[in-house]
Design a protein around this nucleic acid. Structure first.
Lengths: 364, 364
DNA sequence: TTGTCCATAGTAAACGCTTACTATTTCTAG
DNA sequence: CTAGAAATAGTAAGCGTTTACTATGGACAA
């Protein structure tokens, strides 16, 4: 019996942390190596021995120390996900997809929130790096900032060097040569489709409200919006485009202002469903009927869209699917993207769902 | 130079995991101990040395290995939270509170979901135990099952023995003597208040719909409901109570059945807002006006409640606050509850919020 | 009988960090 | 000037696992 294995009480007496593998080994009368093998099952252990070990495990209520395991072994079986806000349905559904797929692949899921703070986002990536997660999934649009891009690219490289990977989910590439994987949805296409639908119903003066300025998501949706106008030969009118923020509050207050200013329009494109909800509220408050007097559409198709009255016509984004795919891609062995679009970037489609908030304009 | 410090490449060449503290030490020309001290800042290090070290750290893109740190040091700076579903707003708001408070206290947050599976819940507690989280927060009602209770009690003891703690959030105690902390909200009181409000408006025949049978949350809400009836001398009618599930779908389908059966009632108490949303939908479908023909109330005051038309009168539960408090309590040094209610159990209040879904009954 | 091979089990060296001791300077007081 | 106290650095012993090597004892073939 060596000195080491003879200790019976922890040296630092750290509040009596639970049983260790050594305790189990002692109780079962075998070496720690044998216990480790019996537990991981990747090496033959005699049946009788194994049973004795398992009995000791339950008797002692032993669970392995994940940190020791991570330190000694290879992988941590954890994926990290960074979102804006846990309670925002857009992110919550993506997180659900990530959580489900991760747990289906036997991983835990470390969820953190940036609350929209870019610096915090960078810090969180580092935190996940410290945790040695198998992958880190970065969700949601990104602001267009060169310094930020460079910093994130550095982290992508560090993650890559450590055998992990950075998955960009619904946000633009960090540039060629930066080792990332990407899963996105057809933002521009959805915006095009729903704008075109509005036009096909006879609308010509369409207000675009919401979405932060210089933000990738806003840029794509606006691009689709403009493309639809251009395709039908409708002039772009800057007075009709009102960026600002995502969120119900923004939709409500900006719509009120616009109503006060007597702008001429027959339909409103809310940058997302929450903005559209705010728009609907402002409209309702002024006694303007939807869709009889003005039509409204949103984007994302989160549950509010169908709670609203009238039910909101919007663009469906397969949020949960997006999260699932992000994990699949992250955990797949495919090499990272090293530039030109390889199969490391996956795009899921969007489509419009027609409900009750659009009709032909009353004043044609 | 010892053998150990002379190694320059990792023995297992594990896909080139990032720089280690030894690399930083070498680059800065000091010992690892000094680097460790400079980084944690809990021991004096000469200014020049410290600067040299920090320079090497950024040069190498070094971040500490959280697992090694957890293994060597005391705490993991992580709290675990177990909820039903990330995308259910009830849980999402609690999770947001947890996430915010945890990050305010410099902790990470491990979020997992049970999808309503009791076995999975037990397994998740073990997973968190493996992760050696500083605390594990268990959210939401629990089913009343002796075997389950015993198993969870065992885990509470194990967690306690390991210096961590189990926080029960919005669920009943595991019994006297089990070391847990609790934060709850006044479920019964809220149900009483809103039922009493309905009665004060003149309602006598009130339907109660939703909530799983043998579930702690359902039990408390029903208790409050009954207490209000009793207080006003209204007879309890079993035909008016319809347990089943939380969720929009249940509210919708059960309400349809009830409507077909011609049950006599003037108001409906939805076990939560989602159930109430389903109820509203079924009512709308049949052309029954709310609140003119029947009044409806919900519980929780999640965002849907104010999206609905009519806006739902409901009971406000300070969800985010609940999550925050759970973390505060978990991380506080107060000893665990060892039986009789000590200050380890905290109850936050609920109150009704009156909106547009209730009016006096038309047929009095 | 002897030599081989297989099934099991044990030994001990990492993994990357923290921290109790120890060692070396450099001050500061007497 | 010098003893003793700071201030600053280094050494090395863990922390709880995994796993490459070794060791042991039969079973089995020759």
């Amino acid at each position: 019996m060596t000195e080491k294995s003879s200790r019976t009480e922890p040296i630092h007496a750290r509040g009596g942390s639970g049983a260790t593998i050594a305790d189990v080994a002692q109780a079962a009368g075998v070496s720690v190596a044998t216990v480790s093998r019996a537990l991981s099952g990747n090496y033959p252990v005699a049946k009788a021995t194994r049973e004795r070990i398992f009995r000791s495990v339950t008797d002692l209520g032993y669970v392995a120390n994940a940190h020791a395991r991570a330190l000694a072994g290879a992988t941590t079986r954890t994926v990290g996900i960074i979102i804006n806000d846990v309670a925002d349905p857009f992110f919550a559904y993506i997180a659900r997809g990530v959580e489900r797929q991760a747990s289906a692949e036997g991983r835990m899921c470390l969820i953190t929130a940036t609350h929209g703070d870019k610096e915090r986002e960078l810090a969180l990536v580092d935190l996940m790096r410290e945790q040695r997660t198998d992958a880190v999934i970065l969700v949601g649009g990104a602001s267009d900032d060169a310094r930020y891009r460079k910093q994130m690219a550095d982290r992508a490289r560090a993650l890559d060097a450590a055998g992990s990977s950075l998955v960009l989910c619904g946000r633009p590439s960090l540039g060629p040569g930066v080792p990332t994987k990407m899963v996105t949805y057809d933002n521009e296409g959805g915006a095009f489709a729903i704008t075109d639908y509005l036009i096909s119903q006879g609308h010509r003066r369409i207000l675009y409200v919401g979405g932060p300025r210089d933000f990738s998501t806003t840029a794509s949706r606006l691009a689709g919006f403009y493309r639809a106008l251009d395709a039908r030969g409708i002039e772009r009118d800057p007075a009709l485009v009102h960026e600002g923020a995502f969120g119900r509050g923004f939709g409500y207050s900006r719509m009120r202002e616009l109503l006060d200013q007597d702008v001429d329009f027959t339909a409103v494109f809310g940058a997302n469903d929450l903005v559209a909800a705010g728009i609907l509220e402002a409209l309702e408050e002024r006694g303007i009927r939807v869709p009889q007097d003005v039509s409204v559409v949103g984007y994302d198709d989160v549950p509010v869209a169908s709670e609203l009255r009238p039910r909101l016509t919007t663009v469906r984004v397969p949020l949960e699917e997006l999260g699932r795919e992000a994990v699949r891609l992250a955990l797949s062995q495919s090499p990272h993207d090293a530039g030109a679009s390889s199969d490391n970037t996956l795009t899921v489609g969007t489509h419009i769902v027609i409900r009750d908030s659009v009709s032909p304009p009353s004043k044609p």
